[in-house]
C-alpha cells in the first residue's frame, strides 16, 4: 500500500516521471522532491491558500491532493509562472504597492489573482476580496493586495503587456 508508485506529470512545462509514495501530498512532492519551495504549506488542510498551484490552469490546493492524483496533470507553480512571465504584471504591482510583507502567503495570492482575472477581467473590489477569501495573510491587512490586483485588472483590460518581473531593476 505504501510502496512508491510511478507517476508522470508536467511541472512548469517539463514532463517528469517520479516514484512517489502514495501518502505524499502534491505540496510535499513539489517542495521536497522537486525543490520548488515557492509553494508553501501553512495549514495543510486547504484553508490558508499558501499552497495554491495551477493544475490544468485552475488554482488548486497542493496540500489537499496527493501527488499520485496529479498523474497526467499540468502543474504550474510560482517559479514557473515567474519564468514564463505570466504573472509579471501582478508581481510588479504587488511590489510597487507593497502588497506583501513576510511573503509567505504571496505565491498563493498570485495564483488566486491569476485565477480570478482569468474568470473575471475587471472584478470589483468586493469581488477581489471575495476571491481572496481562501487566502490568509497575517501581515498586510489585505487592502494593498486588493489594490494591486485591481491595478492589474485595469491594465490587462487596457491591453498592457508586462516584461519579466525579475529583469526589472530593484
Amino acid at each position: 500500500m505504501s510502496a512508491p508508485l510511478p507517476v508522470t506529470l508536467t511541472v512548469n512545462g517539463e514532463t517528469l516521471s517520479h516514484l512517489i509514495e502514495p501518502r505524499e501530498t502534491l505540496a510535499d512532492f513539489l517542495r521536497r522532491d522537486l525543490g520548488l519551495t515557492g509553494t508553501h504549506t501553512g495549514c495543510e488542510m486547504g484553508v490558508c491558500g499558501a499552497c495554491l498551484v495551477m493544475l490544468d490552469g485552475v488554482p488548486v490546493h497542493a496540500c489537499l491532493i496527493f501527488a499520485v492524483q496529479a498523474a497526467g496533470a499540468d502543474i504550474a507553480t510560482v517559479e514557473g509562472l515567474t519564468e514564463s512571465a505570466a504573472v509579471a504584471d501582478l508581481q510588479r504591482a504587488f511590489h510597487e504597492r507593497n502588497a506583501l510583507q513576510c511573503g509567505f502567503c504571496t505565491p498563493g495570492m498570485l495564483i488566486t489573482a491569476q485565477g480570478l482575472l482569468a474568470r473575471t477581467s475587471v472584478p470589483s473590489r468586493a469581488e477581489i476580496r471575495d476571491a481572496l477569501s481562501g487566502n490568509y495573510c497575517r501581515c498586510t491587512g489585505y487592502e494593498a493586495i486588493v489594490d494591486a490586483i485591481e491595478t492589474v485588472a485595469h491594465k490587462r483590460a487596457a491591453g498592457e503587456a508586462a516584461p519579466r518581473f525579475t529583469e526589472e531593476p530593484a
Partner: peptide
C-alpha cells in the same frame, strides 16, 4: 519599494521551512 520583496514575489524566499 522593498528590494528584498522581489525574491519573495518570485517564489525565491529562503525560509527555514525550505
Amino acid at each position: 519599494a522593498r528590494p528584498n520583496a522581489k525574491r519573495l514575489l518570485a517564489g525565491r524566499g529562503r525560509y527555514v521551512t525550505d
